[in-house]
Simulated assay, not measured.
Amino acid sequence: MKDHSVRNPETTQGRPLLVIDDDKKLCALIHEYLAPHGWQVDIRHNGTDGLATALTSTYEAIILDVMMPGMDGFEVLKELRKTSNTPVLMLTAMGDEADRIVGLELGADDYLPKTFSSRELLARLRAVTRRSSTAVFSQDSSGDLVAGPLRINEESHSASLNEQPLDLTLLEFAILVSLMKSNGRVKSREDLLEDVSERRFDIFDRSIDVHISQLRKKLNDDPKQPTFITTIRGIGYRFEEGGHS
């Protein structure tokens, strides 16, 4: 099998990045721009080769196209997420909302329309790798989940912010734990509802938004400049690095 990888000859110790896209011209442009910024770029032009490479090598991030012949980006991502948490930045044609929703629900970290600028690509890439390398929450010796000034103990069902107790309902507590454990990834409303309840909800059920709103008030979290819970429009929510955003 012919090796389609491309590496920057002047950056042998660069940050490893895998690009999976059948558009050879676009791949060359991505490599040309990112290599001088310290990225060591590998390229695969189909989903099958890309998945095999992603599963057998270590990368800081993967840029993955949605539309490819044969194994498309969604299939690649679905298989990848069974064993890997490598940050994935998906490329979508014209920023199609349906593609964004599907990709994020399957575990993509971010997305870009194929009309992106090189500066935006670099910024998004840095953002997804930064979120991945910085733990959203930690677990101390007592077993508490800790994110900045926020502390959760699942066994005692207690929560505190700045060492002050939080009066959370059972559902608010469960939502907060689910978001914290998502490791900085987007959680759709449907995923949250299934996480916190034994019964299944309609995917259009917006009751989760009301509970998120109440939870934000108790966390003193401004939705316009969130410290803990960020809204991903039309999709769901993501837990941020508490106290450090």
Rank of each mutant, 00 (worst) to 15 (best):
H45Y: 07
N85T: 14
A52P: 01
D195Q: 13
R126Q: 15
S178N: 12
L122I: 14
R200A: 09
D21W: 03
L161R: 00
K217H: 06
C27S: 12
D144F: 04
F201A: 12
I30Y: 05
V210W: 03
V177W: 00
T230Q: 09
L176M: 13
P36F: 04
S142W: 03
D65P: 11
D202L: 07
R7I: 01
Y33D: 10
T115I: 12
S178A: 15
K187W: 09
K2F: 00
K224T: 11
R238D: 00
P36M: 05
A54L: 05
M90F: 15
F239G: 02
D23W: 02
Y59L: 02
V196F: 07
R44L: 10
M90C: 13
T169S: 15
K218W: 05
T230Y: 06
Y33C: 07
G38N: 04
V128A: 07
D167A: 12
K224Q: 08
H45L: 08
M1Q: 01
H244N: 04
D96L: 12
K218Y: 04
T227G: 13
K78M: 14
D99G: 06
E10R: 07
R100W: 04
L145M: 14
I175T: 09
A52D: 09
R216Y: 01
E154R: 06
L26Q: 14
F239Y: 02
V88E: 04
Y33E: 09
G47N: 08
I175P: 12
I212N: 03
L219Y: 07
N8H: 01
D99Q: 15
R119S: 14
Q164G: 00
D42F: 01
R216I: 05
D96C: 05
D140E: 12
A35R: 03
S197I: 13
R233I: 06
T48H: 04
V88R: 03
R200D: 09
G50L: 11
F228M: 10
I62M: 09
S160N: 07
E120Y: 09
P36V: 04
V146A: 09
F116G: 13
G234N: 03
S5C: 01
K187D: 15
N85F: 13
E10C: 03
A52E: 08
G95Y: 05
